[in-house]
Design a binder for these strands. Structure first.
Lengths: 125, 125
DNA sequence: TGATGGAATGATAAATCCATCATATCAGAA
DNA sequence: TTCTGATATGATGGATTTATCATTCCATCA
């Protein structure tokens, strides 16, 4: 195993992307990208997730240092840890523009990409 | 399940990040970012991976449409499917600059992030 | 044709991740 | 203090991902 100093950058980067690699976490980060600061209660509404499930995804995002949280009274507020997180989502959107623009990609995407668990209505976009 | 048209963007984005969420795939994409076009043989050398393992990761990258491949004679050449892929890595690097710049993050990263399988010497950076 | 080298695919066990449910913590109200 | 609403943590089974090994495919050369 590696000490942190010598740990290859690839692994740190891969970890970063792992933090982003779930539809609900993307959803959460996009909510945070728009709003500066959002309470867990608000996210519950916007995502339609069950409480502990949301908390679990928030824990992942915290672990990867993509968000920070602050408790005021009994409410916990989240925000993006760095504006670059939003940049990352922006570039991803841009790449997907290209990617989905290609005629074939629809079909390929539909048939070959892993199937995706259904989300509650409220989450659809 | 969703047809491709209504499939929420979050899921498509999450899939994109999943394609990036492995150290060897980052390594591979960075090699491709530098070189316009690279043969599998060259990647074998640069990554130190065993053949079928490399192929498997290349298959993942193809499935996610992050790279394209072309066979000329018996050699297969890969390249990035879109320049935005390199952008994504660039932004990630930038974010990590912030993230690792913070004093605490080293410790947190070392103790709390999932442990990472050791890579052969040749891959270390 | 058969043999050879480069690359991809298939199968499998181990590791990791996810959704669900139950339980715990924390802070304010009664 | 006990209760209650808000949030987090723990445990568990099922699904997905990964590393390894064996096999197959594809193109060239003898």
């Amino acid at each position: 195993m590696f000490g942190d100093k010598e740990r290859p950058l690839y692994e740190i980067k891969a970890n970063l992307f792992k933090g982003l690699a779930h539809p609900y976490r993307i959803k959460i980060l996009e909510i945070l990208s728009r709003s500066e600061e959002v309470s867990v209660a608000q996210m519950l509404k916007e995502t339609g997730l069950e409480g502990s499930h949301l908390s679990q995804h928030l824990a992942v995002l915290r672990k990867h240092q993509l968000v920070t949280s602050e408790r005021r009274a009994s409410v916990v507020y989240y925000r993006l840890a760095y504006p670059e997180v939003a940049d990352l989502l922006r570039v991803a959107r841009q790449l997907l523009g290209e990617l989905l623009g290609d005629t074939q990609s629809r079909l390929v995407g539909a048939t070959e990409l892993p199937n995706i668990p259904e989300l509650p209505e409220s989450v659809s976009k």
